[in-house]
Design a protein around this nucleic acid. Sequence first.
RNA 1: GUGGGCAUAGCUCAGUUGGUUAGAGCGCCAGGUUGUGGCCCUGGAGGCCGUGGGUUCAAAUCCCACUGUUCACCCCA
Length: 416
Amino acid sequence: MIKMISRPKGTNDLLPEDIWRWHKLEELIRKECALFNFHEIRTPVFEETKLFQRGIGEGTDIVEKEMYTFLDKAERSLTLRPEGTASVVRAFIENNLQEMGLPVKLYYLGPMFRYEKPQSGRYRQFHQFGVECFGSPEPVLDAEVILLASEIYKKLGIKNVIIKLNSIGCQACRPQYIAKLKDELKKSKDSLCEDCVRRLDVNPLRVLDCKEEKCKAITKSLPPIYDYLCPECKEHFNKLKQILNLFELSYVEEPRLVRGLDYYTKTVFEFTVENLGAQNAIGAGGRYDKLVEEVGGKPTYAVGFAMGIERSLQVGGALWQKEPDVDLYIISIGDQTKEEALRQLRLARQKGLKTELDTLNRSVKAQFKQADKLKAKFCLILGPDELLQGQVKLKNMQSGEELQLPLGDWLGGIIL
RNA sequence: GUGGGCAUAGCUCAGUUGGUUAGAGCGCCAGGUUGUGGCCCUGGAGGCCGUGGGUUCAAAUCCCACUGUUCACCCCA
């Protein structure tokens, strides 16, 4: 016996018993995107490593320790995409998509890869749905992204989604806040947790959302970033809130919400649920007005969002009902009915009925059992005696009712 | 990367102070009904007890390592 090879750590096989949930979710996403006039884009699952280094930021955890990077045969450094935005931005620039006419509204759906230690709701290959809008500085576009996401969560049946909202300013105002933050935090450096001391240098904003009580106590007294926003950022944030109110979306302002990726400017937001353990964010996004430039394009306003498929399915998919596998199961009794069974099988499928029959030469009883297991709504029964008279039986599996009908005219008995 | 839990049939899990042939429920297959599902009854298949070492007369059981998995931290969707 050859040694069994199992799937790589942190990956999953999506089996038939679950995949229908994915199909349902994907269908729902595509419909909603069409309603909002977003267009699908598919980019490669791997890119030049530089793209992510530049796009996501050298200092981020993703780039520093979570990328699947490899050399191809020509010694090019390539990386399996750890997120979608950088690739879409690259494609936007490379294909001159601004020629579609601004704003350009795109969405993507597919696997992402991060070398992390797996845990609940976190895998090395996971899936994201995301949208990216290019070309408008207006908060109405931020609002549209948030609205699209909320609509999808609602239609997935996910209850109690909390929208957390913040603005982290722009290049004009954020540095001043960070400077202030550093100053204040340094004063009480000794009381901060180990991680926060490190954050002080790497990304001071993150100290704000530390879960340690002692750090919370310190940051509690610090001024919120809102006080430091420039007039433009302030106005943007206030307008966005007005529009969300108009859409009747309830959100929670989170002055401490910051995001891990370097590219965000102004708006940041996060969708969370409670019953998901530590990985409670099912989606997140924000505005990134500088990223297109940083990746090598013309200055272009942009705002986007990404949703974790696995996590969303974990919360939303549990209550969904599966569609039955087949409408009709054809049961044949005795060898002399097998040929006719095949003819009827073909006919039924041509008429659009999901149809199955026994291919293991099993007993009549076993055939019925199989029909039952597949939740067939009807069974077409071909018995030698009836067949001689040109008749078949049609059994309604739910009521148990059985009709005898002419061989050429049983389809009329099917009511789905 | 750091720390804890777990690993026995396809699935969920029992397995006594270490003691002969390792069990149950569910699922799967067949029969009870020479042509009728769900309920019930009977039978059957299916295990190198995660892998490798060690302790012992004897290991699923004790010890170590590795791998996998799971939960949390870091971080993130």
